[in-house]
Computed example of a mutant assay.
Amino acid sequence: MLYTPEQTAGFASYTFRHLLTKQEDHVLTLMLNRPEKKNALNTVLLNELAFVLAYAHYEKDVWLVVLGATGDVFCAGMDLKSLTAGEQAESTVPEPSGPVRLGELLAGLQKPCLARVQGAVYAGGFLLVGGCTHVIATDAATFSLPEVKRGLFPFQVLAVLLDLMPARKALDLCLRARTLSAAEALDVGLVTQIVAEGQLESAVQQWADELRQYSPTAMQFGLRAYQQLKSLPPGQQQAFLHAQFQQIQETADAKEGMAAFLEKRPPTWKGE
């Protein structure tokens, strides 16, 4: 992580320039709030995202994250103008301990994350959408990787897409710069659910309500194991997963879940 637990402990005292945040009922909602720039990611916004996601990772009371955006564009990707101009806007959070790589931020969250996609997603915005565990989009949302039109290539996006779909489909999206409709994005595995524009908020709430019924500890164990599996050779994976199962059985949530099952009552999760 780019921030320590001590740095993020004062989360409530920070005022963010390009993020709106709300924490309620174990759900941390983040809204990209740079609509005048189509929510393009500049240094300030990247640092704010890194800081808030580190907080969400460490904070026991946060069981899941909702990531949305204001305006009519979800995210236009990196703000190339501000990055190439060396924009020196004053940071709103402590300096991260290293470079902020967008493709790694959500991988380090290790908690369920719902993308609330109300508009177009371009370029590096795919790293946000692709890094979430679930993506709920309106039927008007679109998805496009235009980098090859500008002499560039979406290298980091390709790595994320290869986790979601067959290689030929991922490469085609990068090579032909096609604009996908929400239905096409659902078909290739980029989107989880499509809803009408007026139903987006309620659909996201339904997903959050369902996920809050289950053990946050179990989900965190599972998502952490999913990330760790990627670095293990096939011959070591089953031994690793067996060890993980042994460990999770000793958690308070696992003991509560089994007790609730035997006593035929709803469990009371502690996130431990």
Rank of each mutant, 00 (worst) to 15 (best):
Q247M: 08
S13I: 00
R176C: 07
Q249G: 04
V52Q: 02
F126I: 02
N39L: 06
P233R: 09
Q156P: 02
Y226R: 15
G151Q: 15
K37N: 07
A40D: 01
A252W: 00
K149I: 13
L145D: 12
L83N: 03
F16V: 01
L105Q: 04
L190Q: 06
F143A: 13
A252M: 03
L41H: 01
G124L: 07
A170L: 12
G125E: 07
S215F: 03
D253H: 03
G130C: 10
A183D: 14
Q228F: 05
L162V: 09
V160T: 15
R17Q: 04
T15R: 14
Q236W: 05
A185R: 04
A50S: 03
S144E: 15
A260F: 05
T268P: 00
D79Q: 02
A218R: 11
N42M: 01
V129Q: 05
K81V: 11
K270R: 10
I136T: 08
L30N: 06
P35E: 12
V129L: 09
K81C: 03
P233V: 07
D253F: 03
M78N: 03
D25H: 12
F221N: 07
M78Q: 03
V65T: 06
I248Y: 11
P96A: 09
G235Y: 12
F51M: 04
D163S: 11
V62I: 13
R34N: 06
Q206R: 13
H134L: 14
D25I: 03
A89T: 09
L53Q: 02
C113W: 05
T138C: 10
Q244K: 13
L53E: 00
Y14M: 06
T70Q: 12
S97P: 02
K169Y: 09
M165W: 12
L105D: 04
Q206Y: 05
G235L: 13
F261Q: 05
G222L: 15
G71H: 07
G108C: 08
A40V: 00
L223K: 07
F51S: 02
C75E: 00
P5D: 08
A69W: 05
L32M: 11
R101L: 14
V52M: 01
G222S: 15
M31G: 00
P94Y: 06
P96L: 08
Q227V: 14
Q238A: 14
G10A: 08
F245G: 09
A254K: 01
F221K: 06
N39P: 01
Q206C: 04
R101F: 14
A239G: 14
E59M: 02
A140Y: 13
A50D: 00
L32P: 04
